Amino acid sequence: MINIVERHQHILNKIQVNGSLDVHSLCKELDVSSVTIRKDLKLLEDKNLLYRTHGGATLNNPYTVDKPVNEKELLQSAEKTRIGILASELIEDNDSIIIASGTTVLALARYIKPKGSLTVITSALNVALELVQNSNIEVIQLGGLLRKSSSSVTGPYSDNVLTNIFCSKLFLGVDGIDLEFGLTTTNALEAHLNRQMIASSQKIIVLADSTKFGKRGFGRICGMEEVDHIITDSGISEHTIKSLEGMGIKISII
């Protein structure tokens, strides 16, 4: 049996390669108990060498914080633009869709150019203002409490509208994608509204740059089993791609 120094080195080497790891696999590889591995991960976290997660550990801080929308828009802007362009190609003439809030779905809105008619329901003011310039698009702006940090609304007024409609697609932006915990955002009320959008949609399409993977926000939107399609950039790891495909989720990489 290898000693503690060798175990720690093995753990650090593996997490550098994969970006994350799980306790169960480490127990098999190192032939030790889960209690021993959890103690190892705690010691390594105390040294700021990794972050513990449910059932494992990750190299990057998995917890997201809320940021103003104008600050978010500057992050991974090129990737968001390419994601938005690809997502716009999924919209069909005479479609009825829901667009949630976030800077990645805002990028989508900028590239929607339907030849036929299109109905868009959205909670995001900036998305609505982008789309209202196109005469072929009918925009239904959900009402409610305005969140200044995201320029979007939440609350029962939006819920009431969503319970009476059904759309072909939901384009959803998120703050975190965790393979075990699911999709999250930094605000619990927005997470609730996103769940209502999911219930009112046939197909769930998540638009997220690769930095969102392995992250968790305060509000859980749903589990990965609800997701049909994810559009992201080439920064996503092969391990994550294979895991998502194993769940039956389509992955498009720009």
Rank of each mutant, 00 (worst) to 15 (best):
E130F: 06
E130Y: 06
E130Q: 12
E130D: 08
E130N: 08
L131S: 03
V132I: 15
V132G: 07
Q133P: 00
N134T: 08
S135V: 10
S135P: 11
N136P: 08
I137V: 15
I137H: 08
E138V: 03
E138R: 12
V139K: 05
V139I: 15
V139M: 13
V139S: 12
I140F: 15
I140Y: 07
Q141R: 14
L142W: 02
G143T: 05
G143N: 06
G143Q: 13
G143E: 07
L145F: 14
L145N: 10
L146P: 14
L146I: 15
R147V: 00
R147E: 12
K148S: 14
K148H: 13
S149D: 13
S151V: 05
S151H: 14
S151Y: 14
S151G: 09
S152L: 06
S152T: 01
V153G: 10
V153A: 12
V153W: 07
T154G: 04
G155S: 05
G155T: 05
G155M: 02
P156T: 00
P156K: 04
S158K: 03
D159Q: 02
D159C: 06
D159K: 07
V161K: 01
V161Q: 02
V161T: 12
L162H: 04
L162Q: 02
T163S: 06
T163A: 07
N164K: 14
N164W: 00
N164L: 10
I165K: 04
I165F: 05
I165A: 11
F166S: 12
C167G: 07
S168T: 13
L170Q: 02
L170F: 03
F171T: 03
L172S: 09
G173W: 08
G173V: 14
G173S: 15
G176Q: 04
I177Q: 05
I177Y: 02
D178A: 09
L179R: 13
E180M: 12
E180K: 14
E180N: 12
F181A: 12
G182A: 01
G182H: 08
G182F: 02
G182Y: 08
T184I: 00
T184P: 00
T184Y: 05
T186C: 15
N187M: 10
N187R: 01
N187A: 03
N187S: 04
A188W: 11
L189W: 11
A191W: 06
A191C: 03
H192I: 00
H192E: 13
L193S: 06
N194V: 01
N194I: 06
N194P: 08
R195Y: 13
Q196D: 10
Q196G: 03
M197P: 09
M197T: 00
M197D: 03
S200F: 09
S200A: 15
S200G: 09
S201P: 02
S201D: 01
S201F: 10
S201M: 08
Q202W: 12
Q202A: 15
Q202L: 14
Q202D: 15
K203L: 09
K203N: 09
K203S: 13
K203M: 08
I204E: 04
I205G: 01
I205N: 01
V206L: 13
L207N: 05
L207M: 10
L207F: 11
A208M: 09
A208Y: 06
A208V: 02
A208L: 11
D209L: 13
S210N: 05
S210Y: 02
T211I: 10
K212I: 00
F213L: 02
F213C: 11
R216I: 15
G217T: 09
G219K: 01
G219P: 02
R220G: 00
R220S: 08
R220A: 05
I221H: 00
I221R: 04
